[in-house]
Design a binder for these strands. Structure first.
Length: 779
DNA sequence: ATAGGGTTAAAC
DNA sequence: GTTTAACCCTAT
């Protein structure tokens, strides 16, 4: 039996695999029977990828398939959504989120990031996709972000749905096969010209392909002198297509028995011409001998068509071909066999490059409540970037605003129930932009977007004012004003406030002042809405002196202990460089890591701690020498929007600015940076202490602080034992004291005491879980 | 691109 | 049944 030529196989595969209705089982058999072409057509490539994707929609390898698909010309538009969904699912469902997310999304080599970035496929990229990639990257080591991302992307069936949507769009846009395109040329518009130009053997093949009826029609027009100006009637073309469908159905029957040589060669010749894009008639005319190779198998049709009465199809002249049942097990509709047979898609119904038919317009995203962290970060963002710059705020907090669009903050409306029907002190009715909720049974105000913070603050103040002036102290404030939800709330929860208070009591260097005491002590103090005043002793101390003091303290403690007990105690201060934790493990029972932002420089901890770095600039001011009036003798410091740490009666340090993700750990500050810092700090400082304008700026310095994640309990330091975290490898137990952020002065006493107790008793549970929960592996 | 008005429908 | 995030449309 003559063998199938590669070009013939190429044409058949192009046609059959690109037909979505041909089932996978049949395709498998066809692929097994035919040699796969070394130069598959774009349609064939696409079809193979689509079938591979359909068989395995959500996996590592489907990610490859999607990326390959994106590299083909004109991928369907849902591909970006499908690609990011698969990549995100892989990370979100991985047992080791950090490793998976890093491999996929981290700069510069993350697999999905590469595909989506500058050098990757434009079809896979969009602002939303980039945002998601950034979110995953930022979520490494951040359990909050991971939880949100798992909820958003961890659903396999939803991911599969995205892939199915892509498949549907791709199949709809795949366009006609080469065979169909050829058929269209033979019986479609301009057919008459082609037939006229064709030589005899070519025309014979046209007769076969077009079928008897169409042949008669085309030939009839050929004979009319004016026929060339009249297009072939549409019904005629439709009939031709129908005839071709029948023929192609038979063509599909080559599954087990390769197509006979005659047919193959005929197709091959035809395809070769079409493939080159060269005018069919010109080439065929130029090479009549090539057509001759098909001669033996081609019946000697006359121009008038075959002599048999029934319409011809390819089966008629190939007795060796066998039909093949596509469906192994007939389905319910199998009685309608013609529907289930492979059919030729009409080129008219499947245009080559249509717009994707179903854009996921109607799919609403799952509603997710704004959590405290998002609200707090949004509030900070408004401070930092200004209200309205939602895009900046979102883009700079990818680990917090997950699945939010730049519209969402402005769309987020906050309701406040005012139980007092008259409004609260007139403040409520005076608020602009309020809307009446259609369902509301009582007075209700809704705010949204930009002005919420200011307005809600004003409202709260006026409510308090009203309360004070009317002297209605006896009434419960909560009866008048209930904040159901919103940004206006204590900066930390009650629990966190307790911890803070405890911290202050533990830290001998701190002292909290109440509002009245502060006003008495601080000349010109404007009472802010909430503030704390503390007296730091350790601030601004030269690090070398600090270490010296620490050493002396240890010495004193040792001496004291030795004199009280018979046993001799020894304390030693080593100053040495440590490359990694392993370095220390042999010599100690326990090691407490207190490296601040530098904790990340340890290889064992790099990228594992949920810390965000933030550069801060601190400015120092002094009273001019000619100023007589000094700051109060007790020099209380002020903790407010900015903090003012007074160092005696004539010197103050003011901090701090917030430059997130800064890599600049230099303590020196350029003139430009200090100017910017001043513009940021002075308004805040003068907000509580207007007299600051009488002080002179004398210099600025900066540092990197390591900020812990903001939790429902506020920003709490990261404490606890690292054994589980590191995977215990030695007898030495490592402990962490980190993430104190700017509140080190508040927390150091408490966290030092707690950690010391825990280390000595080898019991992490001595430390409150609020401090250690960052370390627990969440399911 | 954001604001501002309003509606829809999911979640509670 | 209410509440509220998401969505829609239009003006600037």
């Amino acid at each position: 039996m003559p063998r199938m030529t590669p070009a013939g196989a190429r044409l058949i595969l192009d046609h059959v695999l690109g037909d979505h209705s041909v089932p996978a089982a049949a395709v498998d058999k066809l692929l097994a029977a035919l040699p796969f072409p070394s130069d598959p057509t774009p349609r064939l490539r696409r079809a193979v990828l689509l079938r591979r994707l359909a068989a395995d929609p959500v996996s590592e390898s489907s990610l490859d398939t999607l990326q390959l698909l994106a590299s083909l010309p004109a991928p369907a538009s849902p591909i970006a959504a499908a690609h990011i969904a698969v990549a995100a699912f892989i990370a979100a469902s991985a047992s080791d989120f950090d490793a998976a997310a890093r491999a996929l999304f981290a700069r510069p080599d993350g697999r999905a990031r590469l595909a989506v970035d500058e050098g990757g496929s434009p079809a896979l990229a969009s602002d939303e996709v980039i945002a998601t990639v950034d979110q995953f990257e930022a979520a490494v080591g951040n359990s909050f972000s991971q939880t949100v991302l798992r909820g958003l992307w961890g659903d396999r069936s939803a991911t599969e749905e995205r892939v199915r949507e892509l498949l549907a769009a791709e199949w709809a846009a795949i366009g006609p096969s080469l065979l169909v395109a050829a058929a269209e040329r033979i019986v479609g518009d301009g057919a008459v010209e082609k037939w006229r130009a064709a030589d005899e053997s070519t025309r014979a093949k046209f007769c076969i392909l077009a079928g008897e009826e169409n042949t008669r029609e085309v030939l009839g027009k050929l004979e009319e002198p004016t026929s060339s100006t009249n297009p072939i009637s549409t019904p005629a073309v439709e009939k031709a297509i129908d005839a071709l469908k029948t023929s192609c159905a038979d063509l599909h029957s080559v599954v087990e028995d390769p197509l006979p040589a005659a047919k193959a060669v005929a197709d091959e010749v035809l395809a070769a011409r079409l493939e080159k894009g060269v005018s069919l008639n010109a080439e065929v005319r130029g090479q009549p001998t090539t057509c001759g190779t098909a001669g033996p198998s081609a019946p000697n049709y006359k121009d008038k068509g075959p002599s048999t009465g029934k319409p011809h199809n390819l089966m008629d002249w190939n007795p060796t071909a066998r039909t093949f049942q596509w469906e192994e097990s007939p389905g319910p509709e199998s009685s309608e066999s013609s529907l289930r047979r492979p059919h030729l898609p009409s080129p008219r119904r499947a245009p080559v490059s249509p717009l994707p038919p179903l854009e996921n317009k109607n799919r609403r995203r799952r509603a997710r409540k704004w959590c405290l962290l998002e609200e707090e970060t949004l509030r900070q963002g408004v401070e930092q970037y200004g209200s309205g710059n939602w895009k900046d705020i979102l883009n700079n907090n990818p680990d917090v605003f997950i699945g939010r669009t730049p519209h969402s903050p402005k769309d987020s409306r906050v309701s406040v129930d005012i139980y007092d029907e008259n409004g609260v002190g007139g403040g409520a009715s005076g608020v602009s932009g309020g809307l009446l909720h259609p369902y509301s049974p009582k007075v209700k105000l809704l705010w949204r977007g930009a002005e919420f913070w200011k307005e809600s603050m004003d409202l709260l103040r006026s409510a308090e004012q009203a309360n004070r002036t009317t002297g209605s102290d006896t009434t419960n404030e909560d009866d008048n004003l209930i904040w159901r939800r919103g940004i206006v709330r204590p900066p930390t929860t009650e629990k966190a406030a307790d911890i803070l208070l405890e911290s202050c009591l533990e830290s001998c260097s701190l002292q909290l002042l109440d509002s009245d005491a502060a006003q008495r002590l601080i000349p010109g103090l404007c009472t802010p809405f909430d503030f704390a005043v503390y007296m730091p002793l350790a601030l601004n101390i030269n690090p070398k002196k600090y270490l010296q003091a620490l050493f002396s303290a240890c010495q004193n403690l040792a001496d004291e202990a030795s004199s009280l007990q018979s046993e001799q105690k020894e304390f030693k201060l080593y100053k040495q460089h440590v490359d990694n934790l392993h370095h220390l493990s042999g010599n100690y029972d326990s090691v407490i890591i207190c490296l601040g932002a530098k904790a990340r420089s340890l290889p064992e901890l790099a990228n594992k701690l949920p810390l965000r770095t933030c550069r801060g600039v601190i400015a120092e001011f002094q009273l001019p020498s000619n100023t007589v009036e000094e700051y109060g003798s007790q020099s209380p410091s002020i903790l407010s929007d900015a903090w003012l740490a007074f160092q005696g009666p004539r010197t103050v340090s003011i901090g701090s600015t917030w430059q997130w993700k800064s890599e600049n750990d230099s303590s020196t500050v350029s003139d430009e940076e200090s100017l910017t810092a001043m513009e940021e700090l002075l308004p805040k400082a003068s907000g509580v202490y207007p007299r600051i304008n009488k002080w002179d700026f004398v210099g600025a310095r900066a540092g990197i602080r390591a900020m812990p994640p903001l939790t429902a309990n506020g920003s709490l330091p990261l404490l606890g034992c690292l054994d589980d975290f590191l995977g215990k490898k030695s007898n030495c137990t490592f402990w962490l004291v980190g993430g104190l952020g700017a509140r080190g002065l508040l927390y150091h006493g408490l966290v030092g005491k707690l950690t010391a107790k825990a280390v000595i008793s080898c019991d992490e549970n001595i430390i409150p879980p609020e401090f250690t929960c960052w370390n627990t592996i969440k399911p």
